[in-house]
Design a protein around this nucleic acid. Structure first.
Lengths: 135, 135
DNA sequence: TACACAATGTTATAATATAACATTAACCTA
DNA sequence: TAGGTTAATGTTATATTATAACATTGTGTA
């Protein structure tokens, strides 16, 4: 069965798949050079190969970048197709990161208008605090 | 009149003041090495001098870091003493950044609880879209 | 004065990310 | 299925962002 253009799946390329698998099975966000180190045995030798795969994976929403940490985490939200509305909680002690999926929050932010009545197409929110274990 | 310990003002040091002034008069967020270039004539020669001043200024809430851009902007919100609750709008074309001060938004986020009932002490929110001019 | 702490100065280096260019693979369509 | 198009890859070099380590100086206060 052919995949139609409209519903086109994001079939990952070789490098993209290797890097996604690594991030997906990681229990914590991974940094680009940690990824590089881990995939060198699979033939990915250069930073640029990693960054290109990361860029694509972010673009299609399979992973997200935690901006305050320069690290990447797999999308936890099965319905998230594009990286356009993301929220995370970050523990300042153990650095555990969790993707927040709250219908209320995302609705509130998607509808938020600034003073000029401006709405935004995209957002990223990072909460900081202490996780249950670290309190 | 002496300044009491409790109400201590943040008297900026020489380097902190130089760097704050530069950021404060800038119409756009500044990157660390752009700052370095600009203050070399004032005797600040090394990246570390810049980063140390930036760290302190962020800590006391005089400036904020725009995480997605690795750039720094002066706090627009006169009541903001600490960098614990920040929100910005970022134009994806002209890169104009504005600090959002919305009582509704900050109240909503300050009171936001995740699925486990967890509240957070701090957050950073970045909205992306097109500014008035760029639409 | 002298103690404590914050800030500075300096050199070196670590960590994060992109430029530029050549090549190969995958996909579509005529 | 040939040929054009785009995405992905490989590779070397380099740009950008940030911190380590250590010595010194300034500042407030007991």
């Amino acid at each position: 069965m052919r995949i139609s253009k409209v519903n086109k799946m994001h079939n990952l390329s070789k490098n993209q798949q290797i890097i996604f698998d690594l991030i997906d099975k990681s229990s914590e966000p991974l940094k680009a050079y940690a990824i590089l180190f881990n995939v060198q045995k699979k033939g990915i030798k250069a930073p640029l190969q990693v960054y290109r795969a990361l860029d694509k994976l972010v673009e299609i929403g399979k992973i997200h970048k935690i901006e305050s940490r320069n690290a990447f985490i797999a999308c936890q939200n099965s319905s998230c197709q594009v990286a356009k509305a993301t929220a995370f909680s970050i523990c300042e002690i153990c650095e555990k990161v969790t993707e927040i999926s709250s219908a209320g929050l995302s609705k509130y932010l998607a509808n938020f208008k600034d003073k000029d009545g401006m709405k935004y197409s995209k957002y990223n929110l990072e909460f900081f605090g202490l996780c249950k274990k670290c309190r």
